[in-house]
Amino acid sequence: MTEPLLSIRDLVTEFSTPDGVVHAVDGVSYDVFPGETVGVVGESGSGKSVTVMSILRLIPEPPGRIARGEIMLEGRNLLELDDDELRAVRGKDIAMVFQDPMTSLNPVLTVGSQIAEAITTHDSKVNDAEARRRTVELLELVGVPNAAARFGQYPHEYSGGMRQRAMIAMAIANQPKILIADEPTTALDVTIQAQVLNVLAKAQKETNAGTILITHDLGVIAEMADRVVVMYGGRVVETGTVDDIFHNPTHPYTLGLLSSLPRSDRQLERLEPIPGQPPSLINLPKGCAFHPRCRMSAGRDVCRTEVPELVQLGEGRASACHFHEELPEEIARIEAAMGLEFGADEQEGE
């Protein structure tokens, strides 16, 4: 493979709270290559958002603190940039689409002016008329009808889906190298989620940006992502291509996520949901953070005492399970029990 465009290395981000230190991100590493889409999955609270917020240092400090790690973008460590250098990266090299389009736009400024300022702040040579023209083009690109007229409208005059389109337009305004979308459709009505995802895919194609797509919807991953990063308890527990993850997961947590997916061949039952609750990030379970919920551990000591390293299993493939080589047996067991084949569903869809 080519060089990664963006490398997150051993990132540690913590929050001091009255209850104790929240280890939101605990040694996370993953890469984004040019033009690819990396899907990040994991239950809510697993540190997906804090990881990407740390990339642009958007963590509120205090209470947050990036304690350790590197964020390398084309040979530069973003965590070492001064304020002006960081500002030049934000919204230019790396742009973000946030989860809630209802609150992510400023209610007292027109949507158009908020997109236009993303352009002018990075290029002082662009005058207002030019910025306006380009904004209207962007709004057209993301499918906002009547774009010229809607330039001057306020966010409350846009529907949720239209606002998220506007956010996407803002994000791609400067042809970013990295596009980060943090659960871009979670807050939207189910009926328009697919449309907005299509717009996102189109926007990515247009800019050829390496994309980080956070979602808890494995269906979205199957459709949009090239590679997958699975997070649990503030750590990466598995990485692999979409094919790998869906057909040959190498971590019991991934397998659990797949098993709890509603499927067209067994439609009504949500089979084998992962038992128990996501872990507390203040007191993470010792050893493998997943062990209290893991069927495969079967009470083995090493799971409770030793944190499993994220071991490379092949090109772009890694797992943080002491017993990853047992996964095929476990998959076979579940497949037999459920009478289905992993990945079959997604293949049909493609």
Partner: peptide, 10 residues
């Protein structure tokens, strides 16, 4: 959130 957006814009 919108101030965070403004910051993310650079």
């Amino acid at each position: 959130d919108y101030v965070r957006t403004a910051r993310a814009k650079g």
